[in-house]
Amino acid sequence: MLCNKFTGQNMTDTTFLPPLIAAIQAEILNNEEEISALDRAIGDGDHVTNLIRGLEALSKLNDELVQLDWSAAFMKIGMTLMSTMGGASGSLLGSMFVSMGKEAKEQDIDLAGITAIYAAGVESIKARGKADIGEKTMLDTLIPVMQSLQSDAEQNSDKATVLANIKAAATQGMQSTKDMLATKGRASFLGERARGHIDAGARTSQLILCVIADQLSEN
């Protein structure tokens, strides 16, 4: 159920998704050069291309997605990302959404439910990637956001606070990767040379989460 204090009047169902996907696509394309440079610096340079490919595939799901409930929509998104992106990020984001789809069956779409769903997604990335916070990956963006959601859910914060906290946690988490040594992903091969560069996956996760927060705040 989507009609509640947090998710807002207009976010009644998965019709929310197509415009959101379009907004994310626009934001990633806007930052394509920068993201590409990040993955070139300490990875192999393909992260943004992989993500754009995945988002393009999602954008073609429009009609299909809006006919699905949240659980099925997340599943569909996960399977689509998994079979179009490739790379480390494809398997991870794919797993995340499939797990979110599974969890969404058990949850209402309120702050607590969304928090639980998102946490299930993040946990599946940790499990699939055998990684945790502090390893210079997308998890350095994703986990702080999970923690902020969890604490806001506990405190039953109002929507503006929740969204502001998501953006702050994502941005701070993303930036924290800059000075880290990498112990997962391709950047780990570079040892000390990886320091001083932001992780590409952390940056795209942050961009995506900020777009989601902005879209939610408009609802």
Binding site: D44, D46, T49, M85, G86, G87, G90, S91, G94
Partner: peptide, 11 residues
């Protein structure tokens, strides 16, 4: 074969 330098997908 995946995309260039990109792992293939599970399917």
């Amino acid at each position: 074969p995946g995309q260039v330098f990109t792992s293939p997908t599970p399917d």
